[in-house]
């Protein structure tokens, strides 16, 4: 239950964010489901991996995959699913504690928290880049293969 509840919260929060982004009614639920998927991946991998930067990377890969698949299925822009699902993973806590350490005058602590937050942001970017690039690559390879096949058949 301690693992499941955050997923539920992330789902409702993503749903509300989808309303703020004004996503149409029939895509609302699916875009919100992305937040759930991300948090579920995070919670599941938490059982075997202790490094949270890696956890964020895996969660981002999961939501990017989900977003790319949903975008192909509904023929909509990937952003609709990706932006909403990404928000629960954005390191708001790290940002806040960095600032808190700074105003408490603990510069060393602030820098280490800040670098950690930056690493998490980097993990988010890497996750999106990995999935998006591999999807484009796969599509290109498939198109080329189809093209070659047609050429061979016509020859």
């Amino acid at each position: 239950m301690t693992y499941f509840l955050p997923c539920l919260y992330a789902f409702i929060a993503s749903f509300a964010f989808a309303v703020v982004f004004n996503i149409k009614k029939n895509k609302l639920l699916f875009s919100a489901l992305g937040g759930f998927v991300g948090q579920l991946t995070f919670a599941l991998f938490q059982l075997i991996i202790s490094n949270d930067v890696v956890l964020y990377l895996f969660a981002t890969i999961a939501i990017s995959l989900y977003a790319e698949i949903m975008a192909r299925l509904t023929s909509s822009p990937t952003t609709i699913y990706l932006a909403v699902a990404l928000i629960p993973l954005v390191p708001g806590g790290g940002m806040y504690y960095t600032m808190l350490d700074f105003i408490n005058g603990e510069i060393d602590l602030a820098i280490s928290t800040g670098v950690h937050t930056l690493l998490i942001s980097g993990a988010l970017a890497m996750g999106i880049i990995l999935v998006s690039s591999s999807v484009t690559l796969t599509r290109k390879v498939m198109l080329k293969r189809r093209h070659l096949k047609e050429k061979r058949e016509s020859a």
Binding site: F17, T79, L82, A83, V84, S121, L124, A125, I128, S132
Partner: peptide, 12 residues
């Protein structure tokens, strides 16, 4: 969230 997503996707 949307700005971050779009920034990354534009750079890709």
């Amino acid at each position: 969230g949307l700005v971050i997503t779009n920034a990354i996707r534009d750079i890709i």
